[in-house]
Design a protein around this nucleic acid. Structure first.
Lengths: 140, 140
DNA sequence: TGTAAACTCTATACTAACTATAGAGTCAAG
DNA sequence: CTTGACTCTATAGTTAGTATAGAGTTTACA
């Protein structure tokens, strides 16, 4: 199977497949006489593994690590657990950051106060530093 | 004030200030005879505005848009509202994506089953495509 | 006055994980 | 034999900066 078919069957784009090869996530396949990449179905599983990991937002270097662990089956699996745990922490902190952000944005959204023009709209005023905000002190 | 002092006072790095200038977020300042950038305190407020926006995760192009709205005060402020609303939607969908991710990762973490070595650990098995998973059908 | 340290300048490369293009070569069908 | 579909490599672009290299400028001090 050439790269176009692999792309269709795996759901990865042709460029992505070549990129994964360049990054060492999948191994370089044989080539035809005309220098076209020639794949067997094993690589489909590898791409599927990578896709599953990417869906969990693991980075390519984390995935690379997992791939190398797969290739040395005897090693203790704590490394895998640790990676997942670390990743869980990252995701958790990103969620709480975004929640704070969301709250701040909602607050900000309320500041418009139905003004008609930009200079009266409270949103831009809120984003300005305190120096420029309400110079005559009429803010409640 | 030269760029180093501005960097200290604004909390932006020197490179970031130059980057913002290149991107058109702040205007190019005067130069000394020796070609050093020379700032007055007005730019401090502009950098502060940008920092406030970045803290809300607005992109530089969104900020650029806000800056240009500030410079034309008469225009209706719906554009500002729309930008914030759109941004709220983006943040909301990112949060829900991350929550799903978090659930999936927690699930995955439970699959290890206290195995000692990578080949028995359920985590990697879970990430493999179905083809390779539990070939003899012993999974519950 | 000389010089060394601290500062600034531009230009370039790097980050992550791809995507998009240019320009060339290969292959199959009609 | 030509057309179109496919593939190849190499390069540039994306975001919002960060980190150099190599050169020039300014300030402090002996």
């Amino acid at each position: 199977m050439k790269i176009g078919e692999l792309a269709k069957r795996s759901g990865c784009s042709i460029q992505t497949i070549r990129y994964y090869e360049k990054e060492g996530l999948i191994s370089a396949p044989e080539r035809t006489e005309g220098n076209f990449r020639l794949y067997n179905s094993v690589v489909l599983e590898k791409l599927s593994f990578i896709k599953n990991c990417r869906a969990l937002d693991l980075t390519l270097s984390e995935i690379k690590h997992l791939v190398s662990l797969q290739n040395s089956p005897g090693t203790p699996c704590e490394a895998v657990n640790e990676m997942i745990d670390t990743h869980l922490l990252v995701v958790e902190s990103r969620i709480s950051d975004l929640k704070k952000l969301h709250g701040d944005l909602k607050q900000l959204r309320l500041k418009c106060g139905n003004a008609r023009s930009v200079d009266q709209c409270g949103i831009l005023g809120e984003l300005l530093p305190k120096l420029e905000r309400s110079p005559s002190g009429t803010r409640k």
